[in-house]
Design a binder for these strands. Structure first.
Lengths: 146, 146
DNA sequence: CCTAATGTCTCTAGGAACTAGAGGTTCAAG
DNA sequence: CTTGAACCTCTAGTTCCTAGAGACATTAGG
């Protein structure tokens, strides 16, 4: 059994964040030592690692709660998880595309910067170009940039 | 010239968010009509679209402020700009790396989920397992954050 | 065994980036 | 000229943490 500090170090999550996750029900109420300190099993460590990764990758806590809820009821069909994962996959691909455009522009600036000025900075155009958008906000809000 | 509502619709940003961006200095104080309503040029629309995209990609407002600064001061010497661009370039590369890791994991989840039940999916393991991380944050090191 | 350092406890408050609401004003269509 | 949508300011709430205060618990060294 791990103390909260060890757990946090192992999962890369700060101690107050762990207590916060418990408070909002994302982690179960921890067992306590005789001195009232929280103790955690390996299973909780996995759960926390999952939450941490999912957060890092942009899932809101509500979505994470859903995913965890699904894996807490292991006899259900995968359809729902599959749908969530597919949706997220498409969004992630769009993000990567746009980040690569931005990366290209930043790299260009760093290259061209040798001794000159930035009069030709085009970062705004690079990310302003909706052609690189994933489908997500293109559908609801038409891209009116021209 | 656009009203705030039109601008918001064009850029996919809610009206109160635009006023908030003005308040914190991310957008310039808008010109006003005779009736005191905000009016926006095409340049502001591009700037707002940029902010929106950058936010979507997970940049904090401070980083966006830096990025916008690159194009706001086109006559400035390269040293400062170069530093900002390099810093942001590293952040972008880190983001891309982690997103590619996520993409792989989501693809894994979709594969494993095909037609099965959740007990086969092992959702927590897939995202919780550090062995599949491209961005290495081993058990004892906190994940690299930007 | 005692003590000092470190870790943990609860609780409250703050911060980032919005978001929603109240109560009032302005604009544009009929 | 009226009416309803869109706008104004201001305050307060939301999400997801993060930091601090003051007190109790655990552990390594002497």
């Amino acid at each position: 059994m791990l103390t909260i500090g060890k757990l946090g170090a192992a999962a890369g999550v700060k101690v107050p964040t762990i207590r916060y996750y418990e408070q909002i029900g994302l982690l179960p109420d921890a067992e306590r030592s005789t001195g009232n300190q929280r103790l955690y099993s390996r299973a909780v460590q996995d759960r926390l690692a999952f939450i941490r990764h999912a957060r890092e990758l942009g899932f809101p806590l509500d979505a994470i709660r859903d995913l965890l809820g699904l894996s807490d009821r292991p006899d259900q069909s995968c359809a729902e998880v599959d749908a969530i994962a597919r949706t997220q996959l498409i969004a992630v691909e769009g993000r990567i595309t746009r980040l690569q455009a931005l990366k290209g522009e930043l790299a260009r600036m760093v290259d061209h910067c040798a001794g000159g000025t930035i009069s030709d900075c085009r970062v705004i155009e690079v990310l302003g170009n909706h052609a690189h958008c994933a489908a997500d906000h293109g559908r609801h809000m038409p891209c009116v940039s021209e």
